[in-house]
Design a protein around this nucleic acid. Structure first.
Lengths: 240, 240
DNA sequence: CGTTACATTGAACATATTCAAAACGAGTGG
DNA sequence: CCACTCGTTTTGAATATGTTCAATGTAACG
């Protein structure tokens, strides 16, 4: 077992609490900084391929990614079906409140740091603090909105547009969290991307080479460099 | 202008307040039955093709469908892109809380009855009533969960599976709201279905005839009769 | 009836998958 | 430092799936 912290520091990007999607005003460590045990699980390290949650587990806490990358998936006929990638600042679990059971499994794609947000504590805060309540409604509403947009993407877009959108969405998610860079390191394999996008790895590969031929980006294994951002956006949006 | 109420009664299905997705315990008319003006807009009639909300309008109320059918859509390069159909018991607007602006337009597919749930009043109730608060969280969480499932459908399913799933989801939505019937009247055109599913009307048509050949259902214009429900489910799920 | 809008069918074409083979790259041992 | 291996990625050719365009059918409504 290697030194997890070192690996994370050297290779991964972490989000500051100010740019976290949760925001510092709802962050458990900041709000409950007198209750030591809740702070303990902040920036908790998990290693690559570690399963953090198994589908069906009781939901007693949400997870917020501080550094690294996670994926969520359900298991269909023995095969894992990825339904989301989560990057620094993202929160996992909001879709499971209604059943109080995690409806998908969560696995670390790379060594990562995650914060935990206890469900009961959050609900107590929601009752006490209007701002926390509104923030949570806003977070959930944003999620619904984002997922509806994603439905549109998947229902309407062809393979090229899906791959283009995927790369661009990674870029913009990092950018929104304060990490503006045209160099992206994919934390997931081509297989994971294909699985998530509903395409084959061969198609992903072919489209990436096509994008290189068009001078939109360069793809060298897991390292992607965007050469022409407007062209990437057009590639992802235009077409039909 | 025809008699709207008559048309609705004769052709459409309405949901009782008990089976509404909102539930009677959070229903504005029931909770605020002393404030007359909030009750006024309950079961308000809208006629076919009427635009109830324009994209970008301030969100001051949610809409709950009591009878009929509505669609939501965004406008992309002048063309309407449908992103949801709403049936009795459904609620519209939860994805717009974060911006307090409706992020899509809402139009009636048929003459319909809709209830209105005022945003401010709901938020006041949320502060006063834990049950209302939890119901709202649950509703939103369910929405996120359902949309995530829909993303999986669209990202993974081919044309046959999409159409199968579409028919089946109509059946089960009606069934969950207490209207169990193998006869479904589509309130939307083939064009709307195609637009929503990201397919062409020709493909929809071909798949419907294929399903008839397989004795899964009969499709006579807008009237669909499911002949073999397990086969329909298999048609929508199996394949890949 | 005849018009109009909507739905179905057919044939040619485009897009993505499948299967097979080759190339690459990180890690291991000589 | 080079050769070897395993797993991943890329490339190629054949096939399947869905679209496009054009023609035909059908149902609702004046």
């Amino acid at each position: 077992m290697q030194n997890i912290y070192k690996t994370i520091r050297s290779k991964s990007y972490s989000v500051s609490c100010e740019l976290c999607r949760i925001g510092p005003s709802i962050c458990i460590p900041k709000l409950l900084n007198n209750a030591l045990d809740t702070v303990v699980n902040c920036k908790h390290a998990v290693s690559k391929d570690e399963i953090i949650v198994n589908e069906g587990t009781a939901l007693d806490r949400f997870y917020i990614i501080n550094a690294g990358a996670l994926k969520t998936y359900i298991t269909v006929e023995g095969k894992e079906q990825i339904n989301g990638f989560y990057l620094p600042g993202d929160i996992i679990g909001l879709d499971s409140i209604h059943s109080l059971k995690y409806n998908c499994s969560v696995k670390a794609l790379t060594n990562s740091l995650i914060c935990e947000l206890k469900y009961e504590e959050l609900m107590t805060l929601v009752s006490q603090n209007t701002h926390v309540r509104d923030t949570l409604f806003k977070l959930m509403s944003e999620d619904i909105h984002d997922f509806k947009k994603l439905i549109l993407c998947f229902s309407q877009k062809n393979a090229e547009e899906r791959v283009g959108m995927f790369i661009y969405s990674l870029y913009s998610k990092y950018a929104r969290r304060g990490h503006v860079s045209l160099n992206i390191k994919l934390s997931m394999s081509r297989n994971d991307i294909a699985n998530y996008l509903g395409l084959t790895i061969e198609t992903i590969s072919r489209i990436l080479t096509r994008m290189q031929d068009l001078n939109i980006l360069t793809a060298r294994g897991k390292y992607i460099t965007i050469k022409n951002l407007p062209a990437l956006i057009k590639f992802a949006e235009y077409h039909k």
